[in-house]
Design a protein around this nucleic acid. Structure first.
Lengths: 198, 198
DNA sequence: TATATTTTATGCGTTCAGTCATAACCTGTT
DNA sequence: AACAGGTTATGACTGAACGCATAAAATATA
């Protein structure tokens, strides 16, 4: 999902620079903006009592994030934190609604986005509930491969650390490392110098 | 999310009776309908290789289900199985699109539905990833309580078996039973004759 | 009221991911 | 080249949920 930046600007959207590590919005807070990433990288995470992160999604340029409150008026379901120095563009909620009203096609695209996100949640949830690290990891990698997210298109190398994979599957780094090694020895996964290729 | 039944009928929707245990649609199959439950109960589930079910959602009357393919043209993300003898109403995909186009407000309601479903997925996923049965269970019960789903409004009794709770949290029945007993002894949960009250 | 079926309950051995500690390996920087 | 910081790797121990078996209780059915 991506709204043309010129369109956004024409409707009064504003750019905002965020430094790596900066929190863009907090889980539980009220919202009044549509957010879209222009450049950089953002992770959409829940942080538990012990400080452990669960990464719901990694946002790449031209993707929107933090969209739930726009429709159900609830708070943010997770925090958005910049992984790298990033530029975001945001549009006021009321304006966003007007924009959708005047562009039904855009609204349909948005429904497609929500659907795709739900689809991914269904998929990953079903795997996590299964308590099979290998399946969880391959489902996750399969998704990233399919959507071309966090993959170096030039060399086909996955740009995810074991820690990130762990934080998206509810596993520990060590478990992810051990499981992936075992997958490599089975031939299920191609790892060169610790990096995953697909 | 509910579309008025008279409206659906006026647009050419058709009723369909399904017996308890009957599969309404299969995970992975192509779809061409909007589905809404009129009466009865339906579970929306994934079934793994060993036959173990993961219940994504339990659908109650006046709720729609199986809606992903309507927007992204993908297959069903989970199977729908009747828990009880039920009546469903379904509308052709193309007609559904037309209905949304002519009723922008309805489309906004639909976005709200998708958002709420996503919100629940975020919530439950974050808990599952945390590997804390007690938290998973209370989050789930909290959700059902909040949405009044599967709760006997007359006596405030939760109409969910431990097995169903297990199938929605990826835990085993025994673990759910044991955890809930411990919660009861802590005073976190009120159980009378094995049934949960809230 | 008696019977059958489903649901809840409990014990016990096993398994596998978690935890902690430590080392090796990359990668970028001065 | 040397250093620092992050990432990957590996071992040993622990613990909590699993898996299976069996029983008790509640609910439905006749």
């Amino acid at each position: 999902m991506k709204i043309d930046v010129d369109t956004l600007l024409a409707w009064g959207a504003a750019y905002k620079k965020v430094a790596a590590g900066e929190v863009i919005f907090h889980e539980g807070a009220e919202s009044s903006f549509y957010y879209q990433l222009v450049s950089g990288k953002v992770r959409w995470v829940n942080i538990n009592d012990e400080g452990k992160e669960f990464i719901q999604t990694i946002i790449e340029p031209d993707e929107c994030f933090g969209e739930f409150p726009l429709f159900d008026d609830g708070p943010f379901a997770a925090s958005a934190i910049a992984d790298e120095d990033s530029v975001i563009i945001r549009l006021h909620k009321a304006t966003f609604h007007q924009l959708l009203k005047e562009n039904p096609e855009l609204h349909f695209e948005f429904s497609r986005l929500l659907t795709q996100r739900l689809r991914f949640k269904f998929l990953i949830l079903k795997e996590l509930a299964n308590h099979n690290p290998e399946n969880s990891i391959s489902t996750l990698l399969g998704y990233f491969k399919q959507t071309q997210k966090n993959i170096c298109t030039k060399c086909n190398r996955l740009k995810l650390t074991r820690q990130q994979i762990a934080d998206m599957t509810g596993l520990r780094v060590e478990t992810v490392i051990r499981t992936m090694k075992s997958m490599q020895s089975k031939g299920t996964l191609q790892i060169v110098k610790g990096k995953v290729y697909c």
